[in-house]
Design a protein around this nucleic acid. Structure first.
Lengths: 236, 236
DNA sequence: GTCTATAGACGGATAGAC
DNA sequence: GTCTATCCGTCTATAGAC
């Protein structure tokens, strides 16, 4: 076919390893997934992992980076768009939320190419005890978080930044659980009539916006207007 | 001292193992914590774990049960009280939330006797990939969940049960992250001026109530009154 | 680039003396 | 109840032939 005897599965092997690792990490967790499980499922040789990635830690890192780079780029692009189209320079909090959580939920709806699997994995990894993983995720998120927090500060003038920080934290928690736990967690097993992730977006957005704009607990002097959006939570 | 040469550390050894296990499970995760790490920290012999608990799985189970039994009993007692004191048989949603999340946050404030450690551990364990752990937690929660969901259904008449289910899911997610992630997660590292868990309660309650009572995304025909509490979120 | 074989460390669990 | 010593399995990573 080609010039010289080609390497049988050059870049293909890498992808198969990454795909298998992603699925198994989701199913069993980072720690409990061995390289042997990964290479078996990927139908490649055990040594291929260390050849292509050097170590399990590097493999983990690449599994996350592969998807996170796109996801966070989409988020920043969405925020750019929202800020460009803001009427009178005033960005609505709901628009900021949609720019951040929308792309994540969109990815979580992709059951065809593993996007859903990845988002479930990501959600539970935020609280992974492994220090290396947490540090890596924090670095990967630093820029996006900075941008979105800044946008929220501006869109909610008069609200203490610390309060916004907390609520953003709460919102990430609610979202992560909603994605990671829908069919993984057994607490609500059999209770959801409808686990379709595409119907999650409007539900979640409504909840998040309600929480974000709730009356402040300790700062009664802040006028309600600064917490308002000008419109109610709306379906997508 | 006593009659015959007594067993040197009868029940004490059990407690030391449980305490050490709790702390180490929190710090490193269930999987990454070896029995050797536990027995070293507890200053007991390696074989003591299998003597007292039979297996690592049983040890894990007892670590959780020890605290969960009390926590869930407190929750049910708080709900009983709320239902007894309800004016006109109508229980406010905010009271139901306080009965469920109040005892959890109270325990999370106990830094003296490991309550905080346990709640951080519990928060991340909800999404643990280990099927055994998830199944066990689900069973431990079944009764409480049933009772609280029923109370919420009654306190929010006209709101579809499925919607309440989802919002309860969101609320548990927000709470778990708030507790588990405050100093474990690095995403917001250095950003919180005040990580004092005792100040978390009013912040979180306000957020949760705002989310629970947010306008419904898909069911615009429900009157606002059914989502209202009669009072705003209030500080603790 | 792919493979086999194995090194070297660590895991949970147990047998049996005390 | 406590301890030492050990079995046996699995893990990551690597060396070296092809």
């Amino acid at each position: 076919m080609s010039t010289t005897a080609p390497a049988r599965h050059g870049p293909e092997t890498r992808h198969r390893i990454l795909d298998a690792a992603e699925a198994l990490f989701m199913e069993h967790g980072l720690d409990a997934t061995s390289l042997r499980m990964i290479t078996t499922q990927a139908a490649v040789n055990l040594a291929a992992v260390n050849y292509h990635f050097g170590s399990k830690e590097n493999l983990i890192q690449e599994v996350f980076q592969r998807r996170l780079v796109d996801l966070n780029r989409n988020r920043l692009a969405a925020l750019d768009k929202v800020e460009r189209e803001a009427t009178g320079g005033r960005v609505k909090p709901s628009k900021v939320l949609e720019a951040f959580f929308g792309p994540a939920l969109e990815l979580a709806c992709d059951t065809e190419h593993g996007g859903r699997t990845f988002m479930q994995l990501l959600g539970r990894t935020y609280t992974d005890p492994n220090a290396f993983v947490r540090k890596f995720l924090a670095e990967e998120y630093a820029e996006v978080l900075e941008r979105f927090l800044g946008a929220l500060y501006q869109s909610l003038p008069g609200v203490p930044h610390e309060e916004i920080l907390w609520r953003f934290h709460f919102m990430m928690g609610a979202t992560s659980y909603a994605i990671a736990g829908t069919d993984a967690l057994q607490l609500f097993a059999g209770k959801f009539d409808d686990a379709d992730p595409s119907r999650l977006l409007p539900r979640l957005m409504s909840f998040l916006l309600g929480g974000l704009r709730a009356p402040l607990a300790d700062f009664g002097e802040v006028p309600d207007a600064s917490l308002s959006d000008g419109e109610g939570a709306k379906a997508a």
